[in-house]
């Protein structure tokens, strides 16, 4: 997952919230919670970097947290909030 080149799905809108953000997919009409502000930063920056890992580095996420980010983005991919470029 860390190697994947990802982007926010074009049909998804993010709405910032105190806990992170709400992501709404206009296609499948699902509402997904991004449960941390760092997740939101990373999600918004994905398209600017060659991989998830590069994005995490650019967003200065400590390597110890990478596995949990990898897992979180995997499930965001399943719910089509992000997708492979």
């Amino acid at each position: 997952m860390l190697d994947a080149a990802l982007e926010l799905h074009p049909q998804v809108a993010l709405r910032p919230e105190p806990f992170g953000a709400l992501a709404y997919h206009y296609g499948n009409r699902r509402l997904v919670f991004l449960k941390h502000v760092d997740m939101v930063r990373v999600a918004q920056d994905l398209a600017n970097h060659p991989s998830l890992q590069a994005t995490l580095e650019a967003c200065q996420i400590a390597p110890a947290r990478w596995p949990s980010f990898a897992k979180a983005f995997e499930s965001l991919q399943t719910s089509e909030v992000v997708r492979v470029r």
Partner: peptide, 19 residues
């Protein structure tokens, strides 16, 4: 964040309604 923690957050209100 666990589901419980999220629910606690939601109970504190959002910047706009979901529903």
């Amino acid at each position: 964040m666990s589901v419980e923690a999220l629910v606690t957050q939601l109970k504190g209100g959002l910047d706009a309604p979901i529903c």
